[in-house]
Design a protein around this nucleic acid. Structure first.
Length: 884
RNA sequence: GCCCGGAUGGCGAAAUCGGCAGACGCAGCGGACUUAAAAUCCGCAGGGAGCAAUCCCGUGGGGGUUCAAGUCCCCCUCUGGGCACCA
């Protein structure tokens, strides 16, 4: 070994492109250190293993969102996992029993696309991608307990999707209905909402998505809508932004339903139902119109404005419209046009921008509050699937109704006014203030309800409607039931059978899983590939033993990710989706970390699934996730990394060049975890240089560190400086891990500590720093670094002679007394401007600060000949002299 | 249109409770080492004026509160994201 190892200038030139392990001991070589430790960690499955509930330690469940196995980790993954990994390691070092699992969201379209393109079976393609990504994760040094790995495309997982589906079917939570769905003509399948980007298919950028009516399986998430909103208030550990997004998505609105009778309606028999008989009979004009429905019910959140209703607006597909149109071909044609406009706007994803059109049906409805007849129109902006598909139009107090009424010359009647500021006269004629939509207002022109405040009026009018049996208070949600059918191969088969005799029959539990057949040719045609396999399609009805047809659609992959984190607690369980005792111990998840792009879909479905499982008696918790953290995106050159932009930085490249420690530490150092991160390779190089300084320093002084026996001497200035910085750093990191998570400043603080140590080298050489102090500093430095650069930490930990597993070593404790500064610099301002800085004892009183400041030369000069009007003296902070 | 972030040196950023704006790092400049370069080490570094001491300006823009504002209040601009005829 070189005898230069105790001097600073040991960085002798290394051979240009090859290092020689062992030769240059003080040269940091992650390409040698990291694979060595990677192999040792891989050989020790206990290292990151969760312990049983009986361990007696407090539990901590830290989870990162599982990736889709595309075959390549990207920087966003690295960042996500670096955050979770740092936290997991910190918790281990604080004595927790940590569950830190990982798995694969392994079903989905890309596997089928790859199958079409490369003629590789989806299963094979997926599993080899998983193997590749697992190698990358291992190389990064992530602390996963692979003993509970979950792969959603394998039967031992998806059989439980099927099992849950049947449980839901039994309870009426899974049902079939025809509905509008997003359909891509090129993919030949239904698309999830998130696969539709501004109306276009995510795979075919110029392919507009169509709206089609299809029979689909739905999960009744709307049964839980109220609880999903209510329990948001329990999620104090979630970002407010995510809670708001969910609240908006669920879209709870309080209002009332009010039933209007249709003037001249004559009850029709079922047989006369116009939608069943396409007859052409024309009604005599004075006979009234024969209708199945003699009334129309509207939903409104502003029943207080009902005296201002001047028309009824129906959605083009409203059943009443069909009844009206039956005897009126002109109307039928006009309605068809309106519907087409609405459908087009929906397909373009731009319903908000539709130009309002409407048509008068020729019929009238009677407002039950004032017995006034108002015309019934059909509007292209009225949506069938919200509320009742019918509204009362109040042009004076609703922007949309106002726009519509202006266009078609409908009456605009003011029925509410601001509480103050406008007298009734000026209110009447001031067209400028319309539409007036404020909540806080008073009623006029509203019969018995005049002069009421609008809130009071809403209650009284709803009660009045209820009392007279033409309405009721009603809560409506924007949230819709979850359509889970996909006309695709690579997903969980929906375990249902269709029997001519017995109808829809679930596959018996003992026949689960319904296996996804392997011998299938996937073609571009798409459209439920399973329907083309007779051996899959044809089954036997478990009820009657007769022939039955199997459901050939598969489940949305969001089903897989709705409960996977429960499976992690007991992934090998062959008899149940999970071990309920293990779940009771580990849940809720203490910390979930992932991208904000899942704020709505995945995280609402997961919450729904948890509540269903609770109602099935499987679990006790109401919510799956205690604390949620959404990290920012990784961007390059100001844009999100993407192949099409050509700005992708490969984690493999970074690791090959700078090592895994430098790459992940940079991902945490560049900015706070919640913000977008601009990737700068030079920054990685900087972190790498820092790590090599750490390496060199520790290696140079590890001998002293091993010699903890030096006689305790009086504290020297140098050792005090080191200890103070050390304990300040420990305090800073401990505080941040406790909540703020500003890992960028944590790493900066460690850099400062290392800078302090390096600046102390002369003092160390002069023997002014006791070995015990130096040893403690080195040992603590390694522990502080361990969450961010685990390879280097493990290596140095062994180098300084520690035998204990680093993860079981206790996180260092700080001592306030040692962290405290004796002397501080206090700024002195004159009239708020900095004029001097004084050195005083850290605990200097106001008097001492005043005296020191007044004695300061610069202060004297600045205050010379002036009157001190006021002195603001904040001990420990500043002195501000106000002079005249 | 509505809701939520963000805007600080050449760049990424820091300032946790209203108290020295720019910690830490990158890029840059100067120096040491070297035949030379790389690497490493030491130093400088917000802008402007000045030989200097020092002074002035400065956290997207405008106003305000305060002894004191990046931080609090009001208005505006730009930017990222979410939602968007939901009655």
């Amino acid at each position: 070994m070189s005898d230069s190892k105790n001097t600073i200038e040991t960085a002798a030139p290394a051979p240009a492109d090859e290092f020689s392990p062992g030769k240059w001991e003080t040269r940091y070589t992650p390409s040698e250190i990291e694979p060595r430790w990677q192999a040792r960690w891989a050989a020790d499955p206990e290292l990151y293993g969760a312990e049983p509930a009986t361990s007696g330690k407090p539990k901590y469940y830290v989870l990162e969102m599982l990736p889709y196995p595309s075959g390549q980790l990207h920087m966003g993954h690295v960042r996500n996992y670096a955050i979770g990994d740092a936290l997991a390691r910190y918790m281990w070092m604080n004595g927790y029993n940590v569950l830190h699992p990982m798995g694969w969201d392994a079903f989905g379209l890309p596997a089928e696309n790859a199958a079409i393109k490369n003629n590789t079976p989806p299963r094979e393609w997926t599993l080899s991608n998983i193997a590749a990504m697992k190698r990358q994760m291992s190389r990064i040094g992530l602390s996963y307990d692979w003993r509970n790995e979950v792969t959603t495309c394998l039967p031992d997982y998806y059989r439980w999707n099927q099992w849950f589906f049947i449980r839901m079917f039994e309870r009426g939570l899974a049902y079939r209905k025809k509905s509008k769905v997003n359909w891509c003509p090129q993919c030949c399948t239904v698309l999830a909402n998130e696969q539709v980007i501004n109306g276009y298919c995510w795979r075919h950028e110029d392919q507009l998505v169509e709206q089609r009516d299809l029979e689909q399986w739905f999960l009744r998430i709307t049964n839980y809508a109220q609880e999903l909103v209510d329990d948001l208030s329990k999620l104090g550990g979630w970002p407010e932004k995510v809670r708001t997004m969910q609240r908006n998505w669920i879209g709870r609105s309080e209002g009332a339903e009010v039933t209007f009778t249709i003037e001249d309606a004559v009850h029709a028999t079922e047989d006369e139902h116009p939608t069943r008989h396409a007859g052409t009979a024309v009604l005599p004009a004075n006979e009234g119109i024969k209708l199945i429905d003699e009334t129309v019910t509207v939903f409104t959140t502003r029943i207080d404005t009902i005296f201002g209703a001047t028309s009824i607006q129906l959605a083009p597909e409203h059943t009443l419209v069909k009844q009206f149109a039956k005897s009126n071909t002109k109307l039928a044609g006009e309605v068809a046009t309106l519907l087409e406009q609405q459908t087009k706007a929906r397909e373009a994803g731009d319903v908000g921008a539709i130009e309002k059109h409407g048509v008068f049906t020729g019929h009238y409805a009677v407002n039950p509050f004032n017995n006034e007849r108002i015309p019934i129109w059909v509007g292209n902006y009225i949506l069938l699937d919200y509320g009742t598909g019918a509204i009362m139009s109040v042009p004076a107090h609703d922007e949309r109704d106002y726009e519509f009424a202006k266009k078609y010359g409908l009456e605009i009647r003011i029925v509410i006014l601001p509480r103050r500021g406008v007298d009734s006269e000026s209110g009447q004629d001031s067209d400028q203030m319309l539409p007036y939509t404020a909540e806080d207002s008073l009623l006029i022109n509203s019969g018995d309800f005049n002069t009421l405040g609008n809130e009071e009026a809403q209650h009284k009018m709803a009660a009045f409607a209820e009392e007279h049996k033409f309405g009721t208070a009603k809560v409506t949600f924007r949230l819709k039931d979850w359509g889970i059918s996909r006309q695709r191969y690579w997903g969980t088969p929906i375990p249902m059978l269709y029997c001519e005799k017995d109808g829809i029959v679930p596959v018996p539990d003992e026949q689960l899983p319904v296996l996804l057949p392997e011998n299938i040719a996937i073609t571009q045609q798409g459209g439920s590939p399973l329907a083309q396999l007779p051996e899959f399609l044809n089954a036997i009805c478990p009820k009657c033993g007769g022939p039955a047809r199997r459901e050939t659609d598969t489940m949305d992959t969001f089903v897989d990710s709705s409960w996977y984190f429960y499976r992690y607690t007991s992934a090998k369980d062959g008899t149940a989706p999970f071990d309920t005792a293990a779940v009771a111990y580990w849940f809720p998840i203490d910390q979930y970390i992932g991208g904000v792009e899942h704020a709505i879909l995945h995280l609402i479905y997961s919450r729904f699934w948890t509540k269903v499982m609770r109602d099935l008696g499987l679990i006790k918790n109401d919510e799956p996730v205690e604390r949620l953290f959404t990290q920012g995106m990784v961007i390059k050159d100001g844009a999100k990394m993407s192949k099409s932009k050509g700005n992708v930085v490969s984690p493999d490249d970074m690791i090959a060049r700078y090592g895994a420690d430098a790459t992940r530490a940079y991902a945490l150092f560049a900015t706070t975890p919640d913000r977008d991160l601009e990737w700068q390779e030079a920054g990685v190089a900087g972190v790498s240089r820092f790590l090599s300084r750490v390496y060199r320093f520790v290696m140079n002084y590890k001998e002293s560190a091993g010699r903890k026996t030096s006689a305790a001497s009086a504290p020297t200035a140098a050792s005090q400086v080191i200890q103070r910085k050390l304990h300040q750093t420990i305090r800073k990191l401990t505080d941040d891990f406790g909540g703020r998570w500003h890992f960028n400043t944590c790493i900066a603080a460690i850099m400062e500590l290392v800078n302090t140590l390096i600046a102390s080298e002369a003092a160390i050489a002069a023997g002014e720093v006791p070995d015990a102090v130096l040893a403690d500093a080195l040992r603590s430095l390694i522990l502080l670094l361990a969450p961010f650069a685990p390879y280097l930490a493990f290596e140095l930990w062994e180098q300084i002679g520690e035998k204990e597993n680093l993860l079981r070593a206790r996180w260092p404790k700080y001592d306030e007394a040692l962290a405290r500064e004796d002397e501080i610099e206090v700024p002195v301002q004159i009239n708020g401007k900095l004029r001097s800085v004084i050195r005083v004892a850290a605990d200097a009183t106001q008097e001492m600060l005043r005296d020191t400041a007044m004695a300061d030369e610069k202060v004297k000069a600045a205050t010379d000949g002036k009157q001190i009007a006021k002195a603001i003296i904040v001990p420990g902070k500043l002195v501000n002299l106000v002079v005249k």
